[in-house]
């Protein structure tokens, strides 16, 4: 197991190269000159050139990239072009907010998804099953920003039960976490259902029934634990798209997390900020996936660890 973890950690290095390179290239290609944006509207050509010089943006592109990457490996994510502050400081300020949001969202994804999936699978093709699955299909099809706006309108504007936006109390978490978590819950529900149905048809479930076990023992002890194995993988993947979703949801609900930071940085062409934000988000994703794999292997001992 340790060897497996070590191997996976080494794989992070190419991930860092890949992510930074892709972001770097994209940022080179998007229109908009960071020096011009920073210098402000109506700035003279000399001022802009001065900015470019200061920021090191007049060096060859390859050189810019190489020096950035070598700094990254020394733990330096560079300074923001806008306020000259270290990117890392800003990220450390915002990451916990995003992680908290992600935590509650994935909790909703798991709890809601599992519950719905089990409810469906226990009585397949019943009215209950069909209605749960129709709702799940809706959950998958709705874009999250639209769902966010809808929830906001309903609970904050109409009913006034919850705050509209911001991040200063537990009530603030509910709507954005729901917005982010519901889509994943729908996917987890469908996966849980099909996995449960598959497992319930297995011989060992018949054995469990033949022993005289109560039906809820058969379902929760014998079926569910086996059915969860493929669901773990789906939850891991879901976490990735959830991270991506924070970009939108943090903007909709005005939450100062990592996602919103990246959006703002893109708008001002603040390359080091974008780079740093995306890199950290990718690392979080990689670590979560490692965690999922370790968990998967712990549950399913049949898999050869290497």
């Amino acid at each position: 197991m340790l060897l497996f973890i070590a191997k996976r950690l080494v794989q992070i290095i190419p991930v860092i190269f890949g992510v930074t390179l892709v972001v770097f290239l994209i940022m080179q290609m998007v229109p908009g000159d960071p020096a011009a944006i920073l210098a402000g509207e109506g700035a003279s050509q000399e001022t802009i050139e001065q900015y470019r010089e200061d920021l090191g943006l007049n060096r060859p592109v390859a050189e810019q990239y190489m020096s950035y990457v070598s700094n990254v490996f020394q733990g330096d994510l560079g300074n923001s072009l806008k306020n000259k502050q270290p990117v890392l400081d800003e990220i450390l300020l915002r990451l916990p907010i995003t992680m908290e949001l992600a935590f509650y969202s994935i909790l909703i994804t798991i709890v809601l998804g599992l519950a719905a999936g089990i409810i469906s699978a226990v009585k397949p093709y019943s009215i209950r099953d069909v209605s749960v699955m129709v709702v799940a299909l809706l959950g998958i099809s709705l874009p999250s920003f639209w769902l966010g706006l809808l929830l906001m309108y309903l609970f904050s504007v109409k009913l006034q039960w919850l705050p509209v936006a911001g991040w200063d109390g537990p009530l603030n978490i509910i709507l954005p976490a729901l917005t982010l978590g519901v889509g994943g819950a729908a996917i987890v529900a469908r996966m849980t259902r099909s996995s449960m149905l598959d497992v319930i048809g297995q011989d060992y479930i018949r054995t469990a029934r033949a022993k005289g076990l109560k039906e809820h023992f058969v379902i929760y002890k014998h079926a569910l634990r086996n059915a969860l194995i493929p669901v773990i993988t789906v939850v891991g993947l879901q976490f990735g798209s959830l991270l991506g979703g924070t970009v939108l949801v943090e903007s909709v609900f005005a939450i100062n997390g990592l996602g919103r930071m990246i959006v703002d940085a893109i708008r001002t062409r603040d390359l080091p900020m974008v780079q740093g934000g995306v890199l950290v988000a990718s690392l979080v994703f990689v670590f979560v996936n490692l965690l999922v794999d370790v968990l998967y292997r712990a549950v399913n001992k049949r898999i050869d660890l290497n």
Binding site: D203, Y204, R206, T207, R225, N226, I229, N300
Partner: peptide, 14 residues
């Protein structure tokens, strides 16, 4: 009861 398939008739993770 004892079933034909001893491979699949036991729960794989218990």
């Amino acid at each position: 009861m004892i079933f034909q398939e001893p491979m699949t008739s036991l729960n794989p993770i218990i």
